[in-house]
Design a protein around this nucleic acid. Sequence first.
DNA 1: TCAGAATTTGACGTATTGTCATTTTTCGAC
DNA 2: GTCGAAAAATGACAATACGTCAAATTCTGA
Lengths: 257, 257
Amino acid sequence: MIPPLMNTASRKQREIAAREELILDCAARLLGEVGYQGLSMDRVAEAVEYSKGTIYQHFDCKEDLLAGLCLRSSQDLYDLFSRAAGLDLSPRERLIAIAFAYQLFIRLHPLEFANMQTLKSATVREKTSAENRCAMQTIEAQVMNTLTQVVRDGVSSGDLTLPQGLTCEELIFCLWATQYGAASLGISGIPFADYGVPSIAGALQKFNNNLLDGLNWHPVSKEFDYAATQRYLEQQVFNAELRMLQDDAETRQRKSS
Amino acid sequence: MIPPLMNTASRKQREIAAREELILDCAARLLGEVGYQGLSMDRVAEAVEYSKGTIYQHFDCKEDLLAGLCLRSSQDLYDLFSRAAGLDLSPRERLIAIAFAYQLFIRLHPLEFANMQTLKSATVREKTSAENRCAMQTIEAQVMNTLTQVVRDGVSSGDLTLPQGLTCEELIFCLWATQYGAASLGISGIPFADYGVPSIAGALQKFNNNLLDGLNWHPVSKEFDYAATQRYLEQQVFNAELRMLQDDAETRQRKSS
DNA sequence: TCAGAATTTGACGTATTGTCATTTTTCGAC
DNA sequence: GTCGAAAAATGACAATACGTCAAATTCTGA
């Protein structure tokens, strides 16, 4: 039998973990309701119905709490990436699936994405706990690894021959940068729709296809119907997420009317 | 003769404009010294040797002051872009020059770039004055226009045939996103050097070249020595800026030792 | 039931933003 | 040069938020 000491200890641990989740849940909800400026530790304490001191036992400072949110979001993102990378498709299709998952995540969790951006700024980052930073790095390494593997698969299957001098990692970095940059610019307030870019996701899709064709990553789009891949992703793989997106949009519309 | 009333009025205006510059200068310096967190309006007031109330006559709130900094940086960036776009080179070379200028700017003014990112977050942006927002939009439109024009030149000169469905604006947006995203990821603290990307600028150069070759933008790199273009940019066009960068690095090294 | 440990609490010290009544300076007319 | 009004500068003050810590409360094992 498990000794009673250990039993209570583990119960305590579970309670603490549960409350940490509760705090993060409330913080996430508040972030949506009152925005980044309006989010205060007092408000969080009130929302979770614990005192501020208790919150501070879980998180060293406000930045650390935000970093906790960021960490959870990153984990969610990684899970989406993993699903995309693990699909039974050609490497090039899987890369497209990952890009799709990324843009989907950003549309599903715009606040978290904005939060992640703020959190990554140097001044905030250096105030977060070493624990959080470490966990974050682990996820980042996993993401980088998952992404790079898809390109490696493309190379080893013979679908892709990397141009002289360009490594897998560099290619992935630049692809990542494109997706990330596009999303960042998308929420930056610059009215790109007025400047001839009606749909960022659409522009990215076309760009990616042309880029991969340009690298001669087989099957190239003349030989394969990548629009069908998009449909497959939308209607089968990420159908649930897209539905949530629609529901959210409807709820918001109903609220505002 | 100019009537005395107008004389004093314009002098006042000049004084006010000069002090606004002074405030921005001090704020920029403080931002470098004490960081974003440590920057307070009291400190700025102390640095410019005026009272806080006077600062608030120039800027509605702290965010507005930061937006002022952001605006100045954007103007500097636009000036660099204009220089690059106005060079007597082929369209493809000019595009490379612009990308070079962008990465150069970010290395020259990392704090301003980080600041610009923070400022673009929705919560901060909506607190800035309408005046600042409008000025910002003007610059953004100018940048977009300058960039798009280079692609249009490529098309009209026959060097580039856009693939079916992809517009100039969408292509520029994606290129911009790549540069912006790469810079953002670069300052995000993710140790890409450990993940096989030793030099972000280097990765971008190779990526851009391959991308433009893939789009069959003439002259393609087999027909033209783009490394020579890079050298030309480094040694002739942006030599002064690169020197400043080196000087900065030396100063920093001397400080820390 | 109880003593001691662990946990929770919220009032408090410090810092920061933004305001506004008061003081100081400037300006033009006489 | 002097005066009164207008413009500008000042800094004390209210409001708010972060993070701390001594006191209060709860829990635990005997």
